[in-house]
Design a protein around this nucleic acid. Structure first.
Lengths: 334, 334
DNA sequence: TTGTATGCGTTATCAT
DNA sequence: ATGATAACGCATACAA
């Protein structure tokens, strides 16, 4: 391996001068030129471990996935958020380190991140349990979709999303509206359910107990289960607001299997706007999360933290807006 | 930061003994116990940069994405392959480093990986141009979907896939079979097209020039374009084998837009079996790539290379089998 | 078994 | 402007 010693010798300067030249500090033009020549000739590449050791700065950001589907990076929502995150931090020359899960033990994961010396951590997880405890955080951290008031968390405006959904149903003449909730230990699940009940109240509608069913962790299996419970009711709803697209798609599917028409008999609105949503039949009307923006916002907040820029000024921007994507899964009642 | 010096002092041993204990080398039981106690008490975490510097081993594997869609990690095929890869290397305590693209300049990317001191590299890219030149590879590398005979590349059995598709069409009475090719600078695109022509020949069928159209880089836009060319023909094919699911989905869509029925008027078979495939209408019959296995196989090969295990014994296993997933997009001709 | 000393490649302090 | 040297945290050859 070629080091700064080789460069120093080859260029006729000391390693101190070489280091300075390499880091754009003050050196003579002549020195800079000769050193750069040597760098080219010897194909010198700096060693990041040595640099990290000396500067205590790794230029790496640790990524922690916590999802219950077991699909990790391939998660339809998370992957897009992370891509948005990555695109932004790349601009500042950070690389992303995806660490192994350590058997799901978050505390171990954090230790590992500490071991790696990452400059920051982004945590994106659907479930609320077994989290890294706040106290231990010596490393700047940003969360996606997690309940906390401190700056350092980014999430969609779930309440607005629920209101958008309910209002859209109401505008189309629906009153018998059900909600398939996300698991009620997850932040998103809780907030969307809360928002649903609030929006219903605003519309002067009552939400019946049997119209509130739990779909679990946003999987198709969970959505199917939940929908079956709804379909088994004597008095079925005419509209179902589902806390996640995957669940919504499964719900539509089982509804059709039961011989009912979608959306004529039962209308659906999902949440997320994952890519599949536009391809199912009927195309799913849904609340779109701006995944790119969520990722980018998280990146901005984290970078601010890393650079000790007070992020409180950004605190009100941590919630990113959602939008209603109208497609074909909502029927207008006569 | 707490170092082995602190542990040494606290436990009453030298740093050498501490280091040995930490690395499970021979030390007395008593020493090990006292040292581990100190580790617990002081919350010691080893510094990976220092270790990497001393051992010249980073326990990181660099990941290089090269895709033309601009969606990076969110790529429906790549993300699943990488997840399979990750699951396997995790078992051996490797972390994954996603490096920034450096403006698409692969040579720069490689330098960056060198700078990072990764133990190995996995390259997964759809296009053939602007690759890292083989010569420079001091770092063990494995490719996904790339043409080379040397051990160190993994890809699906594209020829078999094409044969599966053609035969399935033929079994259902089709003879006027077209092929929407992937870009002909990509390995997958080339191989699937070759396989198609070969399979057609085997079936005693001729492939007409106008039934061979290019869909570009596997995007929906490209698939749509290509299909329009097919639809514009006086004598349309009754079956279309499409080199990628995304393209196939767009092709089906535009076919329906033209007022034709799928699959009654035109049948389709795709390639990949991405998640969306089962949700489109009609559900897409396709050639499934075993993404998980591709990732795992790549991981095994790379790990072998890293550990200097001669991978030639594995060379015949570098091609992973594909399978025909029958769904609803192929019509049986009377 | 345990300890001493040195090296890994870089940055940074302090002289010159 | 440039250079000698210590420091970063750890592993290891060699001594003891």
């Amino acid at each position: 391996m070629v080091t700064i010693y080789d460069i120093a010798e080859h260029a006729g300067y000391s390693i101190a001068t070489v280091s300075k030249a390499l880091n754009n500090k003050k050196v003579s033009e002549k020195a800079r030129r000769k050193i750069m020549e040597a760098v080219e000739e010897l194909h010198y590449t700096p060693n990041s471990s040595a640099r990290t050791l000396a500067t205590n700065k790794s230029w790496m950001i640790g990524v922690v996935f916590g999802e219950n589907l077991g699909i990790g990076i391939a998660h339809p929502f998370f992957s897009q958020v992370i891509e948005g995150f990555k695109k932004h931090v790349e601009l500042y020359n950070y690389d992303l380190l995806f660490v192994s899960r350590h058997m799901g033990l978050q505390q171990e994961t954090y230790k590992h991140l500490l071991h790696r010396g990452v400059d920051g951590i982004v945590i994106i997880q659907s479930h609320g349990e077994d989290e890294i405890s706040q106290v231990d955080h010596m490393i700047p951290t940003v969360y996606i979709d997690r309940p906390t008031d401190e700056p350092g968390t980014v999430y969609s405006d779930n309440h607005a999303g629920s209101r958008l959904a309910v209002n859209h149903f109401v505008e189309n003449g629906h009153t018998k509206i059900a909600h398939i909730r996300g698991n009620q230990t997850t932040f998103a699940g809780i907030e969307r359910a809360k928002g649903f009940e609030k929006a219903m109240k605003e519309q002067g509608l009552t939400v019946r107990d049997e119209y509130l069913v739990d779909g679990g962790f946003y999987s198709q299996a969970g959505g199917r289960e939940a929908m079956i419970r709804l379909l088994s009711l004597k008095d079925r709803p005419t509209a179902v607001y589902v806390a996640g697209d995957e669940m919504a798609i499964a719900a539509m599917k089982v509804t059709k299997e039961w011989g009912l028409r979608v959306p004529e008999d039962i209308s659906f609105i999902g949440f997320d706007d994952i890519k599949i949503a536009q391809h199912v039949d009927p195309a799913l009307t849904t609340i779109r999360q701006d995944k790119e923006l969520i990722g980018q916002k998280a990146a901005i907040i984290l970078l601010d933290k890393i650079n000790s820029i007070d992020p409180t000024q950004e605190v009100d921007k941590k919630m990113v807006p959602v939008s209603l994507i109208k497609r074909d899964s909502v029927h207008r009642l006569a």
